[in-house]
Amino acid sequence: MFSEIFKTLFYAGEIVMNFYDRKEKILIEYKKDQSPVTNVDTLVSNLLLQKLKKITPEIPCLSEEMLLNYRKCQNVKKYWLIDPLDGTKEFLSQKKEFTINIALIKNEKPIFGAIFLPFNKILYYSCNNIAWKEKNGNKSVIKAKFSNFSELNKIVVSRSHSDKELEKYLIDKKKFKIKKVGSSLKFCLIAEGKAQIYPRFGRTGIWDTAAGHIISVSAGAKVMTWNKKPLVYSLKNNSLYNPGFIVTVFNKL
């Protein structure tokens, strides 16, 4: 099953890159919160939904671009969660940090996640609580870890979103290097030991975090709310958004 999903992600990545290279025309609209959504988001969403329905017809799917489907997923133990183009702003500005995300949720927790970077053709994923990175056909297990003593530990923050709470949090982190990164790539950098903290205070959709959540946890990191509670993916309260959270390799927030 997962090998078919990976093939579909690579194929979807090729489609995305045709638009990125402007071989196809990008059409842009704006949501109520003024975030952009494109015909690329919709195209990839439809492709992934069709493929997952074919592979696992018994498991409902929820995509960021098809949120009306969430009622079908409210009372089931398993559902697929898709972000067809995470980092749309980065994609439109022709930065490299956009991804395609797929996660499988069971009992309100992600149990499988895959994040594909179309520009670099890099795949991160978690299977059986082990995190992997695959590039050019070569795959390896990845682990979250501290930097060497000769290096600064890194905090990754959103390239497109900032707020006063984040600025306040960073004030006493003088010993850390701050790196701005788009999309769910921030989770992946934690998972492979290239960063140690990802603090998030602003709103995120559950589709933004589910795949990165299981990948980073499988690599040895912690994902929790600021109240030290688990980040859960329940649809029963009609909420599709996360509270603030932190991803870290440290025991303290």
Results as ranks from 00 to 15, higher is better:
K174W: 07
R71I: 01
R159I: 04
T56Q: 14
S147P: 13
Y70A: 03
R159S: 15
L123D: 05
Y125I: 06
Y125F: 15
N148Y: 08
I105G: 08
K175A: 12
K109R: 13
K135V: 05
V40C: 01
Y169I: 08
N46T: 04
G113R: 13
K173V: 08
N136I: 03
L67T: 15
V37P: 04
S35H: 13
D163F: 05
L123V: 10
F176R: 09
H161D: 14
Q94N: 07
E65G: 03
I102M: 12
C61W: 08
L47F: 13
H161V: 10
L170Q: 07
I100N: 04
C61Y: 11
E134P: 01
K109A: 00
S158L: 01
P118Y: 10
N107G: 02
L62K: 01
S140G: 11
N129M: 07
D163G: 10
D33E: 07
Q74W: 10
L48Y: 04
L52N: 02
G113F: 03
A144Q: 03
T38E: 06
F146R: 15
E90H: 08
V44W: 00
I155A: 01
Y124E: 03
E90K: 09
S160F: 14
K106D: 06
I82V: 12
E58L: 06
F176W: 12
C127F: 12
P60Q: 04
M66S: 05
I111V: 15
V156R: 05
S35N: 13
P57S: 09
G113S: 10
L81P: 03
L170C: 07
A103R: 11
L68G: 08
I155V: 12
E97R: 01
I171N: 14
Y70V: 00
P60Y: 03
I115N: 05
S147I: 06
A114C: 02
L49E: 10
L85W: 07
E97K: 01
P36C: 09
I55G: 05
N148G: 02
L104N: 09
I171C: 10
K77S: 15
C73M: 03
L81V: 00
F119H: 13
I102T: 04
L67K: 14
I82K: 11
I122H: 08
E165N: 15
K51M: 09
K51G: 02
G137D: 03
N75P: 01
W80S: 12
K89Y: 00
S63R: 02
K133P: 04
S93P: 03
C127E: 14
Q50I: 00
K53P: 02
D172C: 02
S35Q: 12
Y70M: 07
W132Q: 06
K139N: 06
I105A: 08
W80R: 09
S35V: 07
T38G: 09
S63C: 10
S63K: 03
A103E: 08
E64F: 05
S160V: 11
I100V: 12
N153Q: 07
K106T: 04
K168R: 13
K164H: 13
N39S: 12
D41Q: 03
Y125W: 13
E97C: 03
K77D: 11
S147W: 06
I155C: 01
T38K: 10
F149G: 10
E97Y: 05
K174G: 09
I82A: 12
T99D: 04
I82W: 09
I115D: 00
F176E: 07
K145W: 02
K53L: 08
S150Y: 14
D163W: 06
L92C: 08
P57H: 09
K177Q: 11
F119W: 11
